[in-house]
Design a protein around this nucleic acid. Sequence first.
DNA 1: ACGAAGCTGTGAAACATGTAACAGCGTTTT
DNA 2: AAAACGCTGTTACATGTTTCACAGCTTCGT
Lengths: 228, 228
Amino acid sequence: MAIKGTQTRRKLGKKTVSELVVVRLILYRRILRDLAFSGTRYVFSHQLAASADVTPEQLRRDLMNVRYEGSPTRGYEVVVLEERIGAFLDPPTTQAVALVGVGNLGRALFAYFLGRRPLLQIVAAFDIDPAKVDRLLNGCPSYHISEARTVMRDKGIYVAMIAVPAAAAQSVADTLVEAGVRSLLNFADVRLRLPPDVYVEHIDIGITLEKVAFFARRPAATKVPGSP
Amino acid sequence: MAIKGTQTRRKLGKKTVSELVVVRLILYRRILRDLAFSGTRYVFSHQLAASADVTPEQLRRDLMNVRYEGSPTRGYEVVVLEERIGAFLDPPTTQAVALVGVGNLGRALFAYFLGRRPLLQIVAAFDIDPAKVDRLLNGCPSYHISEARTVMRDKGIYVAMIAVPAAAAQSVADTLVEAGVRSLLNFADVRLRLPPDVYVEHIDIGITLEKVAFFARRPAATKVPGSP
DNA sequence: ACGAAGCTGTGAAACATGTAACAGCGTTTT
DNA sequence: AAAACGCTGTTACATGTTTCACAGCTTCGT
Ligand SMILES: NC(=O)c1ccc[n+]([C@@H]2O[C@H](COP(=O)([O-])OP(=O)(O)OC[C@H]3O[C@@H](n4cnc5c(N)ncnc54)[C@H](O)[C@@H]3O)[C@@H](O)[C@H]2O)c1
Ligand SMILES: NC(=O)c1ccc[n+]([C@@H]2O[C@H](COP(=O)([O-])OP(=O)(O)OC[C@H]3O[C@@H](n4cnc5c(N)ncnc54)[C@H](O)[C@@H]3O)[C@@H](O)[C@H]2O)c1
């Protein structure tokens, strides 16, 4: 329940699905979208697995969570599988997302999430800086953080991203949770402490870069395939 | 070898360390820095563990990788432990990092990595847009991507971050690897396919937000402590 | 029509990771 | 001075995740 080795699961029907499976399903779906777009009709597990950088066995196992069976001869029908994964992953309706902190990172995130993901839209921004509040950013209204409760309630927002300075992150998170947010994506480099029924994901770019740098100096740590 | 459930390890002396351990050590060190800064001299495993949102057992176990033993009565001496983790994690010398793609995200990353991490510095930026090339960004020179090989060699760069559009990411990655980069942090939403001796970490914000949204709608999936 | 080929789905084994339990040891208490 | 305490390091156990291995289809070639 910490840094995401083993963690939250969500019950679905009878079974329970781990975060890792969810992430991979999301990835598969994205690849399927691209395939569909490029006109591919059928795909085999080993092809899809290669694109996702996963073994075919794992892909097939992950797909067991979805109600769809491929044909041994044709493989999976791209659009059908995509649709099936969607049925598993997608919300019944569009989900509204809030973004808190309209600084360097916040603005980049705005730009990024603009057109895509019709089911997941940033519908409100928050900041504390008077200069950034009560305007329209890419067509999305920005509010002072003190209005969180009202806005969340009015717009039915349960998901938020936090992109404020580390020092402010915990207090912002508390405010958001009080305002009804149930699930958070935090970019500030502090570990948030929140009630256990709130889902929190940390994207800690600083730590990740340190990690990448660390593994850059390894004496070739990857598996060597047997040669005989 | 895939989405980071089970993965790369780095040999160190006799033992081998998993990515998850490395990430947690980095986190512990950051917390120790803050503690040292605030004047704390000693810390117990349960305190440090709480800040890192980890169990004390796990913390102690992680620390087994570092050559330092705490006192049962005082706990760990903050500055010593910090130093010891540093000895484990840090490069012998400052590590140079390149940033490829100076768009919305690239600029935000620049701002973020400016003052911090003296051991890890962005010393070169690359782009393909003539308007963004051959200038100074926050005191850091930017080059056309075609100069990658020369610049990497001259500056001894082995670590790079990729923040270019998805369509360009694979080709940029190939170029970088050819130019000598050994370890990559990729923000574009494509899974890079690279030789196995290159370390690649993906930060896929789109997928992560989808995941967070998914778990926002769970019927309270967290563990319930026994009640009798 | 039959066998070979090549894929899927899945039970069972192997592996990695996290959790619990405990032995040892300074410090404080009585 | 001895016993009790509370914390550390480590070993043993439990859980979660991936890999292996194989049975069952469906087509294709002969
Ligand atoms: N910029 C990056 O690439 C990057 C990378 C990794 C992590 N981060 C983290 O993301 C966070 C934001 O980074 P940034 O570069 O955008 O910083 P920034 O200073 O550019 O922006 C921070 C924004 O948050 C607002 N803010 C401050 N206190 C607030 C509060 N209490 N409530 C609401 N809004 C508040 C500020 O007004 C500002 O607009 C930081 O924690 C940083 O560590 C940023
Ligand atoms: N902006 C975000 O918050 C965000 C979030 C998640 C992921 N991403 C991903 O990060 C990447 C960059 O996002 P962005 O918003 O900064 O995009 P952007 O369009 O603002 O910037 C992309 C930059 O890359 C440069 N570029 C294009 N092709 C190149 C090449 N072959 N070599 C070198 N440079 C090249 C462009 O000139 C531009 O400066 C995208 O893949 C995006 O999906 C961005």
